[in-house]
Amino acid sequence: MQFDDDANLDTSEVKDARGSRIPGGRATVGGGLVGLVALVLGLLFGVGPDQLGLSEGSPDPAATSSSVAQVQQTCRTGRDANTRDDCRLVAVVNSTQDYWKQEFQRRGGRYSPASTVFFTGRVNTACGTATSAVGPFYCPADRQVYLDLGFFNELRSQFGASGGPFAQAYVVAHEYGHHIQNLTGTLQKAQDGRQGANSNAVKVELQADCYAGVWAHNATRTPDESTGKPLITRLTDEDIRDGLDAAAAVGDDRIQEKFQGRVTPESWTHGSAEQRQQWFYQGYRTGDMAQCNTFR
């Protein structure tokens, strides 16, 4: 995965709250058993912690303030994205939003951007309080993606993914898939409280995987507004394999087998490893969001 060295990164799309102190209250999604249950239930790569009843309290604006602002100081160009993990994620956010903005315009609509919040350990959101135990998630109430960068180490060590830069990009693109669903009204279908292999919750997650693939298909041909050239200049077959591997690693069946020793499809919320790979590749192969109708 390669970025244009001379491209300018737009750090306004990322809020860097790493190292910020979260005042008051207590963490309601902790490590140990509670964190493990959260992972098995499937908030991983999902939508706000309030869905699982694992949060409490009102959002604290200070929690997402850019008090450290590391990315604003260090992530300026594509060259930085080619050498630093956090800058790479800034570049992926930029590329993802460039694509969806242009796609919405092509379809006669208007794209509303979403920020990504980098945090460490715990964060308060409009969807409630969460810790990094729940994995990356999108909060529809404040239209922000939340990401503890330490998760990518866990993706390799705990979930057995091969890792790599594009595995990280896949995670970000999946969360922006939820943002697209929020803008189009599809995300509400997952709010019926049902679980299971054929539930709307699973179909919403698989569609977000497909949207991630659609972005990947178009990433190297989407012009950056500042330069008129694509921000991402190269994606290799190995990159796509890393993305597929990450998708499989967080399939409900893989997670359940690893953490509870058995597979229970009636409690699925995200889909199997095979389904997640299938729908990501469907998006990547076609490059067309219209081919991501998981509800048919």
Rank of each mutant, 00 (worst) to 15 (best):
R21H: 11
R21V: 15
I22V: 11
P23N: 09
G24Q: 12
G25M: 14
G25D: 10
R26L: 15
A27D: 07
T28V: 13
T28D: 07
T28G: 11
V29K: 08
G30T: 11
G30Y: 03
G31M: 09
G32A: 13
G32E: 07
L33W: 09
V34K: 15
G35T: 04
V37N: 12
A38P: 00
L39Y: 12
L39W: 02
V40H: 08
V40Y: 06
L43W: 03
G46R: 11
G46W: 04
V47D: 15
D50K: 11
Q51W: 11
Q51E: 13
L52G: 01
G53V: 03
G53K: 01
G53P: 00
L54P: 00
S55H: 02
E56I: 06
G57A: 02
S58E: 10
P59Y: 05
A63E: 05
S65N: 14
S66D: 15
S67M: 13
Q70P: 03
Q70K: 12
V71S: 00
T74V: 12
R76D: 04
G78I: 02
G78K: 03
G78F: 03
G78L: 02
D80Y: 03
A81R: 00
D85S: 07
D85C: 01
D86G: 01
D86R: 03
L89H: 01
V90T: 00
V90N: 01
A91D: 00
V92D: 05
V93D: 02
V93Y: 00
V93P: 05
S95T: 03
S95C: 04
Q97H: 13
D98N: 15
D98V: 07
Y99D: 05
K101V: 01
E103P: 05
F104W: 11
F104D: 05
Q105E: 10
Q105G: 05
Q105L: 11
R106D: 02
G108N: 07
G108V: 07
G109T: 04
Y111C: 05
Y111F: 09
S112K: 12
S112R: 13
P113F: 07
S115E: 08
